[in-house]
């Protein structure tokens, strides 16, 4: 391989994915690694963080730094890492169980904090790694291992949730359309703030309802219609659309200060590069408070 070819695959890991053949997650993985290369990021300056679930093996299939956290806690780990070193590019990748179930609280709080990271959820509307139970995004009526008479709870709406929580970049992609996914990932990486992409990523083994074919018949791109992604109300209305037609693309994008720009310490320095301890601080300014 020549230098250019090597450069193109520099984010590809040495370990081969163990996802099922045909899994939707492959689409997001290849789109992500190629966009990272295209945009000139370096694997040692990039950290990919995940939780638990099929999709959360994502970091292992790349050459970047990574943290494979416990279930549902990828976002807090990303937050801690980002705050101590905002110069790293952080991507959080996980599934719907991880992000919309056990970790949904962190999803809301990370969104409202507007930390400058990308969060991608491979949403297959099923628990795959535990062999086929319903997920918070499972469609009503879906018969799964834990819902023999069909899912009777309404599914979570990740787009509305992200908008309501104050995410500053909200998008949906479809892993059957990697070209569009690449576009969304590129826009998310370039966005300053919390960028969220809900990725429709069919499970070919356990979800026989929401298949590639099922989505292909329904998805359309907001970029193809006259849609103003700077309007929050329009974004909310569009986020409610699900059924015969499913919108993909960027629902909303806005720019406000990020947390590393407002935190009294992070806005001035990258703390991991600072000297340790209190040697440089006037002792009296510390101890007078206690007298």
């Amino acid at each position: 391989m020549n230098k250019d070819e090597l450069e193109k695959i520099k984010f590809k890991g040495d370990v081969k994915p163990n996802w099922c053949p045909g899994c939707g997650d492959y689409g997001l993985l290849s789109a992500t690694t190629s966009v990272l290369s295209d945009l000139g990021y370096q694997p040692n300056e990039t950290v990919i963080i995940s939780g638990i679930g099929c999709s959360s093996s994502f970091p292992h299939w790349t050459s970047a730094y990574g943290i494979h956290m416990i279930h549902g806690r990828a976002l807090p780990a990303a937050y801690g890492l980002h705050m101590v070193n905002p110069s790293l590019k952080i991507i959080v990748a996980g599934g719907d169980g991880d992000g919309y179930g056990i970790g949904v609280g962190h999803f809301i709080h990370t969104a409202r904090r507007n930390i400058n990271i990308v969060y991608m959820v491979m949403n297959n509307q099923i628990y795959g790694l535990t062999l086929g139970q319903s997920s918070p995004s499972s469609q009503q009526g879906h018969i799964t291992l834990t819902t023999p008479s069909g899912v009777d709870e309404r599914p979570i709406n990740p787009i509305s949730l992200a908008l309501g929580a104050g995410a500053t970049f909200v998008a949906r992609g479809f892993s059957g359309d990697t070209k569009h996914l690449r576009y969304l990932i590129e826009r998310a990486l370039n966005h300053k703030g919390f960028s969220f992409i809900d990725v429709l990523s069919p499970c070919v083994t356990f979800n026989k309802l929401n298949t590639f074919q099922w989505f292909k018949q329904r998805v359309y791109k907001l970029e193809d219609i006259n849609f103003d992604k700077s309007n929050l109300s329009d974004a909310f209305s569009r986020s409610l659309e699900w059924g015969e037609k499913i919108p993909t693309g960027i629902f909303y994008e806005t720019t406000i200060p990020t947390l590393d720009e407002t935190d009294p310490v992070a806005r001035n320095k990258i703390v991991v590069k600072e000297k340790l301890g209190l040697d440089n601080i006037d002792r009296n300014s510390i101890f007078d408070y206690f007298r």
């Binding site: 963080i49 807090p76 801690g80 705050m83 320095k269």
Partner: peptide, 26 residues
Amino acid sequence: FGIIVRQAEDELAAINMIIGASFGGA
């Protein structure tokens, strides 16, 4: 003191945040 001090949404978040920060060298 040059310390990033953040109030977490719960203790689950708090400990996972410091794990992330420690991974980064802090």
